[in-house]
Design a binder for these strands. Structure first.
Lengths: 344, 344
DNA sequence: CTTTAGCACTCGACTGGTAAGAGTGCTAAA
DNA sequence: TTTAGCACTCTTACCAGTCGAGTGCTAAAG
């Protein structure tokens, strides 16, 4: 990526800033007057022309002002953006809210996604923290009066999964408890593959349980719940007044496979302090035209992590959004690490 | 509600039908030609005039055709609508899908909400089945290497809740298991109040556990997860091309308290074969202007029930939607009853 | 008394033409 | 290299005029 002159940087930054605020194409005269630039509008025009030729700006039509292109936004985020911390009052407010909801992961998730959505005025998403390796921790078998048994599988990291099992014949709760205990001892700390390859010196009941356990563990590794909020926010943005742009954005957030694909592909190589910024789908994601995503991981690296992020229009206050995402990720990381501190 | 002549009924029904199909105001001439009515457009006009005066129809403006009012829709749903069953091919397809996802409640919910959304081309919601009374069934205590303990509480009906507990000092897994066993025996089949009033001849650990258990049971009675799907569908409807109408609708579906309030207040007195139809918020719900909701309960009455429904524009094919809602509710009821059949 | 044909009227949707205004690119002078 | 000036382009708003769909009313026909 070629270098721009200092003045071009300045002008590009101002165009981005003004456009994110007003959603209107910004012209040379307005720029000079509004920001009291020490040059004339003609000079700005010349620079804008070059920025346009180089692909950082574009004109919606011949006699309109300039609007940043995706390339322009990317350059802005990488080179020009000033990173600001969240106001400390806001920080305290957020931290306070999290401490209200003590030790309840679900509540944290809901809170995180709500805070993100509210602070960024965009759509937010958070995935539940997921262990790097899915390891077995504990099994309970709870019988009902019929021949059905509820299996409750606890994984390392605290995730709880359940599955129903139908027995060919009634079995007493005592025997169920003993079986569960034996399985727990036998499998503790193992991953799905290890459990699957346990030699089968077990009876039918135990075989079934093993099989279902492995199944559930495999299912767990596909990922847990995805929390969303602020979907209504993005409808407020003028770029989504055309409904099909809005529908495309909503579909991404709604359709799980799409979203999972996005998350796994996006969060591979952290760039800016661990925060990924995906602008306009980077060519590859047609669904994300006119959208940007700001994503990051949170949790304890290689142990228990989740993803959290914000989806909004390409015209987005990247500085603020990135700060918010980073801050919330920090808070969540602390909570998660504290909770599953040394053990789990 | 006054009675209408047979001919007025016929005309009203045709107006509703045509309007739900085209989303355009329907005029007298079009009606006569399109449906080969055995009367002239003037006659239709006279009838329409009366229907307008009585409040069943209205004109967007002086020289436009007629559009049903909310009153018109209500009358239509109550008196004129022909109830059709879902095509049997569709029925089989749906049932088949459900049988693919054997014994996994979460999967059922996801499937139900997806089928509803897809069939009705509107937004769908389903709440997880919830027991009429929240009764304790089983407790597991799973210690980690630290001083923290994961409580896994199983309720009658199979709902599983978890909560973290921090101990003042380490406790062996053996002692935890014994405690859990004692608690289980002690509390099985009791509700939150009964457990809260158990005389406290317990040690500190046990006291804490009891307290948290009661807390979780109370929290559970507030209701579980709400599954949503098809939010993007409603953006496709022309009445939601104005974004703030769409935003209002989205907010209802997004904001949990709003939605819960709606569900609890709406599903009180089943009318049409158990299916409730809320048209345009019935005056009381401003957020639902231009929206209608079709709701019903599913499950085993007084034992384990949930709510499922569809939210779409007031201009909605009520017949089809109601059939779909009813059918999916039936399928879910069967599954839930089967699963928790006699026992649980 | 009911139905229908005829008609004047209303109002939104579309069309074309004009004027205003914003913003540009270019040129020539500072 | 910067800037003032200017012609040019294109959007937006506004207005008038036309068209057509649909109405309500009236008077005649059944």
């Amino acid at each position: 990526m070629e270098r721009l002159t200092e003045r071009q940087n300045r002008i590009l930054a101002l165009v981005v800033r003004n456009y994110t605020e007003t959603a209107q194409p910004v012209g040379s005269k307005l720029l000079v007057e509004h920001y009291r630039l020490d040059m004339s509008s003609a000079t700005v025009r010349n620079e804008m022309l070059e920025l346009t030729e180089k692909g950082y700006l574009r004109q919606p039509h011949t006699s309109a002002g300039r609007v940043p292109t995706e390339k322009g936004y990317r350059y802005f985020v990488r080179q020009l953006m000033v990173q600001t911390d969240l106001p400390s009052a806001t920080q305290r407010m957020i931290v306070h809210q999290f401490h209200q909801a003590k030790d309840d992961i679900e509540e944290w998730m809901r809170l995180a996604v709500s805070v993100l959505a509210h602070q960024s005025q965009a759509a937010a998403l958070v995935t539940a923290p997921h262990p790097h390796q899915v390891l077995f921790k504990h099994l309970s078998l709870i019988g009902t009066s019929g021949r059905q048994v509820l299996m409750v599988i606890v994984l390392m990291g605290g995730e709880v999964r359940q599955q129903l099992l139908f027995l060919p014949e009634p079995v007493s709760q005592d025997r169920l408890s003993v079986t569960a205990e034996r399985m727990t001892v036998q499998c503790e700390g193992l991953n799905a593959d290890a459990i699957a390859s346990i030699p089968d010196n077990f009876d039918n009941l135990e075989q079934d349980i093993l099989r279902l356990t492995v199944e559930e563990m495999r299912r767990s590794s596909l990922g847990g719940e995805i929390y969303r909020d602020g979907l209504a926010n993005i409808l407020a943005e003028p770029e989504f007044s055309e409904t099909d742009a809005a529908r495309r954005a909503l579909r991404i957030l709604e359709e799980r496979p799409l979203l999972e694909d996005l998350l796994t592909r996006a969060v591979v190589s952290p760039k800016i302090g661990g925060v990924q910024v995906l602008i306009g789908g980077e060519g590859a994601w047609d669904e994300l035209r006119e959208c940007s995503i700001v994503l990051t991981r949170y949790g304890s690296p290689n142990i228990l992590t989740g993803i959290l992020g914000v989806l909004g229009p390409t015209r987005m206050p990247y500085g603020q959004t990135i700060s918010t995402v980073r801050f919330v990720a920090g808070v969540l990381s602390d909570l998660v690490s504290d909770m599953y501190g040394i053990g789990a």
